[in-house]
């Protein structure tokens, strides 16, 4: 917050958090059991309690009751969330976590804070204002606005943006991005793929999992010396986030196959799975052109709680890859330093 913002904030103190204050009763209902940790992808990445739904609710409670003043550090935490709603949907106390969060975000933006978190940003130099991103966003967080005479720009509504990142993978100019640090940006996902394949030479498949349908069943504790699976799981948030270059990158790094596990078509919050389906059909055609078996790419749908079905699908996929063996073209090109 700049100096002017601070002056405004202090002058308007009585009116601050007018949206969030209506939630005080609901915030009291949170018994702070912390069960929401289990379901929070941000917590599993960062492991700070301030990244959990419980932590965010505490901060909002502290601000509306006047116990703490908002700081940039607090604002950063409030704007880090992917709205998977695993917390809201599973809270037995019925606390509407993400609704409260949305109102707190609106209050903080109104108070003049700089916000980033998981919100997408558009690089004006790269953006051609083609508008591909606008219909991709189910939350209407992106719009084309007039900038000046015959000039336009893409504007991000920072309250409405859910951080799903679908627009990031849809942008043909690579102009839309998110801040690193939550392990969901393309460079971070690339890095995860590379690390998994480097650490386990026997790994055959990379499996991209949707956070919404499958993440809650995944582990937090590490057992590196014990679990050597022939596949590596990567949470990519929505399956629509799996950009073509991520899949190709996995093949280049030595994976024998790539599986994408998304929500069933009618269950996806973001309609991202339709985009993935179209994208993977095209990618399979690209593989054919390269004389690589297209069945090395697999797309399947899983509802929440279908972890047994996922396990079986992965096992079947790995068995198929073992029959196919490594990608011959890739092997050959590696020999020649390609």
């Amino acid at each position: 917050m700049g100096l002017l913002g601070k002056i405004f904030y202090i002058r308007e103190k009585g009116n601050n958090f007018k949206r969030s204050k209506k939630w005080e009763g609901e915030l009291n209902k949170c018994i702070r059991c912390g069960y929401c940790y289990e379901l929070c992808p941000l917590f599993k990445t960062n492991n700070w309690e301030s990244d959990t739904p419980r932590g965010k609710l505490l901060l909002i409670y502290g601000m509306i009751t006047g116990e703490i003043e908002p700081t940039q550090g607090i604002v950063d935490k409030i704007f880090q969330c992917f709205y998977c709603k695993n917390c809201s949907d599973n809270c037995s106390a019925g606390v509407p976590v993400t609704d409260i969060l949305t109102d707190a975000r609106a209050d903080l933006i109104e108070a003049g804070f700089e916000v980033e978190g998981t919100i997408v940003k558009v690089d004006e130099d790269l953006c051609s204002v083609c508008g591909v991103c606008v219909p991709v966003c189910k939350y209407e967080a992106l719009s084309i606005e007039e900038k000046g005479k015959d000039q336009h720009e893409i504007i991000v509504d920072k309250v409405e943006c859910r951080g799903c990142g679908l627009c990031v993978s849809a942008c043909p100019s690579g102009a839309i991005s998110q801040k690193d640090g939550c392990e969901i940006t393309l460079p971070e996902l690339h890095m995860k793929v590379s690390n998994l394949l480097k650490e386990n030479k026997d790994m055959k498949a990379i499996v991209f999992c949707c956070n919404w349908s499958l993440f809650p069943g995944m582990q937090l504790s590490e057992s590196p010396t014990l679990v050597k699976t022939p596949y590596g799981l990567i949470v990519s948030m929505c399956s629509g986030r799996v950009a073509p270059e991520l899949v190709l990158n996995a093949f280049e790094e030595g994976a024998w196959g790539v599986m994408v596990a998304g929500c069933p078509p009618e269950e996806c919050d973001h309609d991202g799975n339709y985009k993935t389906r179209r994208r993977l059909v095209l990618l399979k055609n690209v593989l054919k052109e390269l004389n690589i078996e297209p069945e090395r790419i697999k797309l399947d749908w899983f509802s929440t709680g279908e972890s047994a079905k996922l396990s079986k699908a992965i096992d079947d996929f790995v068995k198929k890859l073992e029959k196919l063996g490594p990608i011959k073209k890739m092997e050959a090109s590696k020999k020649f330093g390609g």
Binding site: R32, G34, S50, L59, G62, I68, I74
Partner: peptide
């Protein structure tokens, strides 16, 4: 390590 109020406040309580 953190001494940011965002963390201090969150770690100030439990259930």
């Amino acid at each position: 390590v953190s001494d940011d109020v965002a963390d201090l406040y969150v770690y100030s309580s439990d259930a």
